[in-house]
């Protein structure tokens, strides 16, 4: 196999090509695309915007990657994001000193703790009761927004708390805080799953549950771990989203973000059938989605129509991954080879 063929057959080849094409389109439409300027010690530019706006999706997609690797899915992340935002904002609003750092710390801690409970709940339904993941998490997806509204009492909670706002739109050594948080979550996930045996065991359960059971793996604990981690990621993303607008909107915080996250995972080359996963692929996938949104914007299409493009991307990726496509391509190759063979024999 030639070097080129090896590169093309790498599973990150197409996602990266997709990202580069999007970059190229942007560059044509907006020559200053790659320019990053420093203003008041803070970084600005289109790329920075992509990173910052894509951070919540990336954070959730990291958790989602691990869930999908176990043959699961978590539809409730949007609702969990809404709940955590609602919890944090209501605590900050209820405190006499909303601007106090300690208040914000408590609010964030409580929001994250509650998300852990929600994650354990999902894990319980999947691992102990054995309910299909898509169904199990559908319950929280439905009820979760109601719970979030219960917490906000149906209002959009606007908070005036600089430390909280810092989470969403602040800068840390010139880098947007959201990007820093995303990098930390990504780094921890990569480190924990690849430096310990967690990643391998998760993949093993996703690839062949029965063989894993016979090898002595405890799938139950792993499932609890991934669903809890995914809920935690969702809560972190929810806090960033809420802090960014300084308002908790139970209806719209994290709306459709579960779909973006799943999309990022799929584009990144992790199969929805479970098994081998790549966090780096998910990173690329999240960037592709966010760049797509930005591109649609820079090219001058109403930004709201990005969903049509997302639909196209999902469809193309699914069709490329489809066994039917693989079979027809290999059939085509075989026919080609057969024809070549015949030609050889004839000559």
């Amino acid at each position: 196999m030639s070097g080129l063929a090896k590169v093309v057959s790498h599973r990150l080849f197409w996602p990266i090509v997709m990202l580069l094409v999007l970059f190229a389109i942007n560059l044509v439409a907006f020559p200053g695309f790659f320019t990053i300027t420093v203003r008041d010690g803070q970084l600005f530019g289109s790329l920075i915007d992509i990173l910052r706006n894509g951070a919540p999706t990336l954070i959730i997609a990291v958790g989602m990657t691990l869930v999908i690797a176990t043959r699961g899915i978590d539809l409730s992340v949007g609702a969990v994001a809404a709940i955590s935002g609602a919890v944090a904002c209501s605590i900050i609003l209820g405190s006499p000193e909303p601007g106090n750092l300690a208040t914000v710390a408590v609010a964030v801690a409580v929001a994250l703790l509650i998300s852990l409970v929600l994650g354990v709940w999902n894990g319980f339904l999947v691992a102990v009761l054995g309910i299909q993941p898509i169904i199990a998490t559908l319950i929280l997806m439905t009820a979760g927004r109601g719970v979030a509204m219960l917490i906000t009492e149906g209002q959009i909670l606007t908070v005036n708390s600089p430390p909280f706002k810092f989470l969403g739109s602040g800068f840390w050594f010139g880098v947007p805080v959201a990007v820093v948080i995303a990098a930390v979550v990504f780094g921890i996930a990569a480190l924990v799953t690849r430096r310990t045996a967690l990643g391998m065991l998760i993949e093993s359960v996703g690839i062949n549950p029965e063989a894993s059971r016979q090898a002595g793996l405890r799938a139950r604990g792993l499932l609890f771990a991934v669903y809890t981690f995914c809920a935690l990621c969702a809560a972190i993303a929810g806090l960033i989203l809420t802090a960014n607008t300084a308002a908790a909107d139970a209806n719209n915080t994290g709306l459709f973000i579960e779909l973006d996250a799943i999309l990022a995972v799929v584009i990144g080359g992790t199969s929805l059938a479970g098994g081998r996963y790549t966090l780096f692929g998910t990173l690329v996938g999240a960037l592709v989605i966010q760049t797509l949104v930005t591109t649609v914007y820079t090219v001058g299409i109403p930004p709201i129509a990005t969903m049509v493009f997302k639909a196209a991307v999902v469809t193309i990726v699914c069709l490329l991954q489809s066994p039917t496509t693989a079979a027809s391509i290999s059939g085509f190759r075989r026919r080609l080879a057969a024809r070549a063979g015949k030609g050889l024999a004839a000559s």
């Binding site: 391998m200 993949e203 062949n208």
Partner: peptide, 9 residues
Amino acid sequence: RDEGIVGDL
């Protein structure tokens, strides 16, 4: 195949 190897590892 079904109970032994974990093929993609």
